[in-house]
Design a protein around this nucleic acid. Structure first.
Lengths: 354, 354
DNA sequence: GCCAGCACTCGGTAAACTTGAGTGCCAACA
DNA sequence: TGTTGGCACTCAAGTTTACCGAGTGCTGGC
């Protein structure tokens, strides 16, 4: 989030700063529009904090703000609506980080106090929580478990030439990968290979696996163990951790009144890969809020995205995000996403440590 | 599906049968309304198969059909719309089971030919396929793997007093269940218990597990093995197989023009448990189509549900279904659900057998 | 029993009008 | 010079009115 530009001269300001009164007016317009979803007239802005002038003066300032691209008019003789640039200014200049109200804080606390069960379930329910908190659609991307060390590796025969490599990680998650064997393998051989693999991989993390399994003396066992190792190594490259959980997608229906928009946004949400890479993309560009076209993904031009990385034990991985109309309640959304992200990270950390 | 009532007398027909001309008119109205979503006037029905009379006569019949509750009029001087009862008659008297067109048959074939990977993935993608085929929202409930025998059981230590029971089934699925241990357990003890469990449970199916593990001589090992057995047994009662996959939920947005309806239906779809038990309920009552209020679930009164059980290797379990507006294309929906259900069952059977 | 003809109904669309929130501009003021 | 009250103007939304036409119910004749 770019810091406010304190170096700006008062007379000719660089484009990303505004004199205090303009800023106050813009902020008031955004707040009002977020609350009412109606174009905001000059009258509604007088009396807002920092705006102690008449409506005529406000109008004059609004003309200027429109000229600079912060506001837009749906038509002459209507109030003003913030542009994406206007929202951007608003978000960048939020005076306080924004805090959840007591009821919501309590809700989060209760949720994580009583969180239990499998990770997948928890992520799923977390997306529901976030949707409840913000009345937006929530997205949770499961953390890649790169750092979690392997607790157990096992090869299980499924059919004559098919086996399954089952890996249990310290965070309680399980990964599996089928193995095609080139010829029939005796149970004992499989067991021996399993044992060898287990010895070689145990306590390594998936993203730092050894490249070979020490020879056991039996070439057949070595071959099977090698195949098993390949399978497990394949897990680390596969984006298996990128499971997406979407919560509260019904809330998109309330956000837009055009049924077409709803439909197209929902159909995007059905494409996990697209959503996950979009979130990753936004984060990679250092943004925590992407408004309108800022993310460069045309079909979601009328939406805003709020993301936060989930860091487990220091290392960042996993994402928590919100999708809503550009006129979403940014302070609340930011606060919610942040606190949920933190709590989730802490909780996952606990699980991994135990 | 109740068979057509052939015993009916021609003059005073029991309520669920109609003279051929009325039936033809009703069928034509339903077909037309499904296609156009507009109230159907008497003129549009003339010329339909089995209706070789003038519009005036059709009108007279329509008055009768309205009186008997098969049709309704949004207002005077508008065309007729089928009631739930009208749709019910239509569905019960479909002349031919309905067949997918060539393009769709091909699509299904291609899908299952190239289906690969994990079961969960396949179920998820199947829901997408079904949504594509029918332009409705599709629901797939994973098959309970009761019959699949256990291939492997393993206890893995996660923390000082926490272990994980990992069960691999013959169909390649994995179940896990955390175990709380009453006191610290040595690795060797855990391994021995693991071994004992494996010996006792192997090749049993989850719904026919032994109630005890034979004593090993070491009471500590027996205790841990007992705890493990309890955990595994808990799996069979938990409805772990009832995972729900919803595909094409965006299609609900196109089905209704009232944004409120869309919202409320979508929010229902977010509640897995509700949907799963609703589907089960419909199937239990012997229906494959539930129209409007027939399923007794008020919030979905404007929807119809089409379900089919997925039978794997003879035993039924798992469900494939569709959710759409009551004016959905029933012949197509029935055909799609049926063929996809069959194919899915066959495919899952293969996987379990291999 | 069927059907052509006819008067009638009523939702939907379009045009004309009204309303009011909101604007831009300007002259006067501190 | 920046601010303000006043004023004429604009235009979306709501209301009224009129009209059209798809569709109906009815009836008398075949």
């Amino acid at each position: 989030m770019p810091a406010r530009n304190h170096a700006a001269r008062a007379t000719t300001v660089p484009e990303d700063d505004l004199d205090p009164r303009k800023a106050a007016i813009l902020t008031a317009v955004v707040n009002e529009y977020i609350a009412s979803a109606q174009p905001v007239g000059s009258q509604h802005v007088v009396g807002a904090p920092g705006v102690n002038v008449s409506s005529a003066t406000v109008r004059a300032e609004m003309v200027a703000l429109e000229g600079e691209g912060y506001l837009a008019q749906p038509h002459t003789s209507a109030g003003r609506i913030p542009t994406d640039k206007g929202y951007r200014f608003f978000v960048d200049h939020l005076t306080r980080p924004g805090m959840l109200d007591a009821a919501r804080r309590r809700q989060v606390r209760d949720f994580f106090d009583h969180a239990h069960g499998e990770i997948e379930d928890m992520l799923e329910r977390t997306s529901g929580l976030l949707a409840d908190l913000t009345d937006c659609t929530a997205m949770v991307v499961g953390p890649a478990h790169g750092p979690a060390p392997v607790r157990s590796v096992q090869l299980v025969a499924l059919g004559p030439r098919v086996a399954l490599a089952v890996v249990v990680l310290a965070d309680g998650t399980i990964e599996k990968q089928p193995i095609e064997l080139s010829n029939d393998v005796a149970d004992a051989t499989l067991a021996a290979a399993s044992q060898a693999l287990q010895g070689a991989l145990r306590d390594h993390s998936l993203d730092a696996l050894p490249t070979a399994v020490g020879p056991t003396g039996d070439p057949e066992v070595d071959a099977v163990a090698g195949a098993g190792l390949e399978a497990v190594r394949a897990l680390s490259t596969a984006d298996a951790g990128d499971q997406l959980y979407v919560g509260g997608s019904s809330r998109m229906a309330a956000a837009f009144d055009a049924v077409d928009t709803v439909r197209s946004v929902l159909s995007i949400l059905e494409q996990q890969l697209v959503v996950v890479s979009l979130l990753r993309d936004v984060l990679d560009r250092g943004l925590s809020v992407a408004i309108g076209t800022e993310h460069g993904f045309e079909p979601l031009a009328s939406c805003a995205i709020v993301v936060v990385p989930v860091s487990v034990e220091g290392g960042a991985s996993g994402t928590v995000g919100l999708l809503g109309p550009t006129r979403m309640n940014y302070p609340q959304a930011l606060a919610a996403v942040q606190v949920v992200g933190e709590q989730l990270g802490a909780r996952l950390g606990e699980a991994a440590r135990s």
